[in-house]
Design a protein around this nucleic acid. Structure first.
Length: 655
DNA sequence: TCAACAAGCGCC
DNA sequence: GGGCGCTTGTTGA
């Protein structure tokens, strides 16, 4: 193999953004790139360190290379895009090699956020200068650090990055992982674009809605405080409405240490002397319901007062006062969540510009065990499905948000992995598997309400739940849950076979790991290589049950990782890359986010009229073709996407 | 006072 | 049952 031509990129920046959004936030208006370091692996030219107005970097980027290399590249790329739109156009054409992403994949998702330092150690390069790192940690940006300090630091980073990339590329080729890695690097381009674009926020609506929620919170809090006051004195007294510990003591009893002053003779001057005595006080349980064993925490022994427990009490406690109090607490919890996590939480991430307001969340590609993406600062993947979502609107006058969802993605992937004939037939034929399973059990199709709870049985089973858990989660009897499990495996027998085979292989191939220091692990580990060559790492855990073996692989992880990983770790990112290439040069369309099995676009009216929705839908409905051409393996069934759109992210309607 | 952990809860 | 991240309270250094 001839020597690869790599160009490394590293940006040193100011650290001026407020703490709430992260001081180095690449999209914050107060931040900018100060030094841009570029190092070419074959050119004899010196490394480049350019300032903002320097055109040298542009020249460098125009050089053709095999990979543009960096560490945590979405960060550097966003800064470069902001510097100059010419950079954006040129850089987005490049093939990327992010050493952090490559390391995460090579490690079988065990290295989360691998740092340049850690990788430098592993691959035998000098670890960088601690002084600069300390300065960054102290909030001193690159603009306040003199050249003579920062340039050698930057150069070392660039050299290490290039060297690490060269090692990794060899490894990835040897491991047969290159197709996966390349598709992940394309996805990196897409999520970088999404982070760069951000989500447009309707701040006027946000302010109004925030006021409404705050008012509601105050009302609910007032009412709950009043109800708490009405609890007889002999029970534990709630001091903090938000404390689960205190609620547990009130509802299920418990003891509490109370410090009391006790007379202890007299001082010489005749004044009475006191000493503090700690007494244990036992409180009776306010609820008449005895706590179930499964409500008790394994680690702390505390009785849970989560939603499930509270709902149970609110329905079945024999004392009306208890039922009412707990109902009010449930309401309080709900409103608190809305206020703290969504109103206040999202509010501090709004970046206000003269023209428009945006939330720029991070989309992380190197954090999960399965290869799924995650979202932080703020987490946009768990926004409540309620009017809070109305804050997200189009940036275009008269524009719309458009969301594409893969239909039944994880079930379809399960069908592919297990090659289950009936499951493939059901999904390919457009049948709803929940309806079909219900019909097998009851001889007729369910109505909408029935289907909703019944659906949770299917997902529970795929995630690995047993009949007992299924009955609790779905709120049905154990008999129904048992019957469901039998029905499911009777209709889809290959799923059972696949599950069993995963367990067998894990037990057969799991090995004890020896550390570099020569220590051998008590638990075994199994690295499973999927057909896309993604590596899943399974570890044994201490068994809950007495008997057979002390340590076992988790059957639920074995069932779930390959499904979740292929679906939302491999297939969705593959298509993110494809959609990115298709849309990146289309005007009036912005890629703005991705939530596990969906892709979110912000579209102008003109773009909609020019048929962008149909274009993307066609791409997504051809996923099986891209899968085959990328991984060389046919998908056992075609995937399809649904589309919905709306003026804001709450009022989306199917199109 | 701070950091780590636990509980709780939002999403797919 | 799987996968996450955020907020708050608790705990222990």
């Amino acid at each position: 193999m001839s020597k690869l031509h790599l160009i490394a990129l590293d940006v040193e920046t100011t650290l001026n953004a407020p703490k709430e959004v992260g001081s180095s936030h690449p999209m914050h208006p107060l931040n900018k790139a100060v030094y841009v370091g570029i190092l070419d692996s074959i050119a004899v030219l010196c490394p480049t360190f350019s300032s903002v107005d320097d055109r040298t970097s542009e020249v460098k980027f125009s050089i053709d290379c095999d990979f543009l290399v960096g560490c945590n590249m979405s960060f550097d790329l966003c800064y470069m895009y902001r510097k100059n739109s010419c950079f954006k156009e040129v850089l987005q054409k490049k093939r990327l090699w992010d050493i952090q992403l490559a390391e995460y994949l090579i490690s079988g998702q065990t290295e989360k956020w691998p740092s340049l330092d850690r990788m430098s150690l592993k691959y035998g390069f000098p670890v960088k200068d601690g002084i600069i790192t300390k300065m960054f940690e102290a909030g001193i940006g690159a603009d306040k650090i003199p050249d003579y300090l920062i340039k050698p630091y930057l150069l070392q980073d660039l050299k290490n990055t290039l060297g690490i990339a060269e090692h990794q590329i060899k490894m990835v080729v040897d491991m047969g992982m290159m197709d996966l890695v390349i598709s992940q690097m394309e996805a990196l381009h897409c999520v970088t674009e999404m982070m760069y674009n951000g989500m447009n926020v309707d701040y006027v609506y946000f302010a109004k809605y925030a006021g409404e929620v705050a008012t509601e919170f105050a009302d609910v809090q007032f009412k709950l405080a009043k109800d708490v006051n009405g609890v007889p004195d002999r029970y534990y007294s709630i001091e903090d409405l938000a404390s689960a510990t205190q609620w547990s003591k009130l509802l299920f009893g418990g003891n509490s240490k109370v410090v009391e002053k006790e007379a202890a003779g007299f001082y010489k001057n005749g004044k009475p002397k006191f000493k503090n005595v700690t007494k244990n006080v036992d409180y009776p349980s306010f609820s008449t319901i005895a706590p179930l064993d499964e409500w008790k925490s394994e680690k702390t022994g505390k009785v849970s007062v989560d939603e499930e427990v509270l709902k149970h009490i609110s329905m079945f406690d024999s004392i009306p006062q208890v039922r009412d109090l707990v109902k009010q607490l449930l309401l309080y919890r709900e409103v608190t969540k809305q206020l703290t996590t969504y109103i206040q939480g999202l509010g501090k991430h709004v970046i206000r510009n003269e023209e428009q307001d945006y939330i720029y969340s991070r989309i992380n590609q190197v954090t999960t065990a399965t290869g799924r993406l995650s979202s932080t600062t703020p987490n946009i993947q768990n926004i409540s499905n309620n009017p809070i979502k109305k804050i997200f609107t189009s940036r275009y006058e008269d524009g719309t948000l458009v969301e594409f969802d893969f239909k039944q993605l994880e079930v379809a992937v399960l069908a592919h992995l297990t090659k289950c004939k009936q499951l493939i037939a059901d999904i390919s034929g457009g049948a709803d598997i929940h309806n079909e399973l219900y019909k097998e059990m009851y001889g007729k199709y369910p109505d909408a309400v029935t289907r909703k709870w019944f659906k949770s049985l299917t997902f529970g089973l795929i995630y690995g739940a047993g009949a007992k858990t299924l009955s609790v989660q779905a709120g049905c009897t154990l008999e129904v849950a048992k019957k469901f499990v039998v029905t499911f495996y009777a209709r889809y027998p290959e799923v059972k076979g696949w599950n069993t085979s995963m367990e067998n292989v894990a037990n057969l191939k799991g090995v004890h790991i020896t550390t570099p220091e020569g220590l051998t692990s008590i638990t075994r580990q199994w690295k499973h290589i999927s057909e896309t060559k993604r590596i899943y790492t399974f570890n044994e855990y201490k068994s809950k049950y007495e008997g057979t073996r002390d340590y076992t692989f988790s059957p639920t992880e074995l069932k779930n990782y390959p499904v979740q990983g292929l679906a939302t770790g491999d297939i969705v990112p593959l298509m993110l890359g494809i959609v990115f290439r298709e849309l990146v040069s289309t005007s009036g369309v912005k890629l703005i986010n991705t939530i596990h099995d969906s892709i979110l676009l912000d579209c102008s009216r003109e773009a909609i009229e020019s048929g962008v929705v149909e274009k993307v839908k066609r791409l997504l409905n051809s996923t099986h073709k891209y899968y085959q051409s990328t991984f060389g393996i046919p998908l056992a069934l075609k995937l399809s996407a649904g589309v919905s759109s709306g003026k804001n992210w709450f009022e989306m309607e199917e199109v």
